[in-house]
């Protein structure tokens, strides 16, 4: 069984992007080997013009223009949902920072979130080792059981 991991990295070496900053998610496929199979582009139409670069927003959720905007909660939810949907075939997402709303969206889809500050290599090594252990024990977490 293979699965995919989405990583936010600008140079392919460091996990250096916040979830909202990612323009191209690096998609790794893990089976026997781990290999980079795709650079999945976030379509520009997916966000507001001031999107993730909003200087007032420190959460890094990339939720576009709007924490608490328009008087009805976080107006960025639509954008987050689209971003999340873009990589919902992955087993987990690795970014430097993932905002609260995005985390909740991933949680709903049973996708693990790892907001870490390390190299891509280290992240892949640790995560694949972790999933290998989980899967070899036939636990509840195997995706093919879902």
């Amino acid at each position: 069984m293979s699965y995919k991991i989405a990583i936010g990295s600008s140079d392919g070496i460091h996990v250096d992007l916040k979830f909202g900053e990612v323009e191209n998610f690096l998609i790794y496929e893990v089976s026997e080997e781990t290999e980079l199979v795709e650079k999945r582009k976030v379509l520009p139409g997916d966000e507001d013009a001031d999107g993730a670069k909003n200087p007032d927003c420190a959460s890094g959720c990339g939720a576009g223009s709007g924490c608490g905007g328009h008087g009805n909660g976080c107006a960025g939810s639509g954008d987050v949902t689209q971003r999340v949907a873009l990589i919902e075939d992955c087993r987990c997402i690795v970014c430097k920072k993932v905002g609260f709303m995005a985390q909740k969206q991933f949680e709903k889809r049973a996708i693990s979130v790892f907001d870490v500050d390390c190299t891509v290599g280290e992240a892949l090594e640790k995560i694949t080792a972790y999933y290998k252990k989980m899967d070899s024990r036939g636990g509840y977490y195997r995706r093919d059981r879902a």
């Binding site: 693990s112 790892f114 870490v116 390390c118 992240a123 640790k126």
Partner: peptide
Amino acid sequence: SINEKDVVF
């Protein structure tokens, strides 16, 4: 309050 991330990393 450790979670899955701390288990892995």
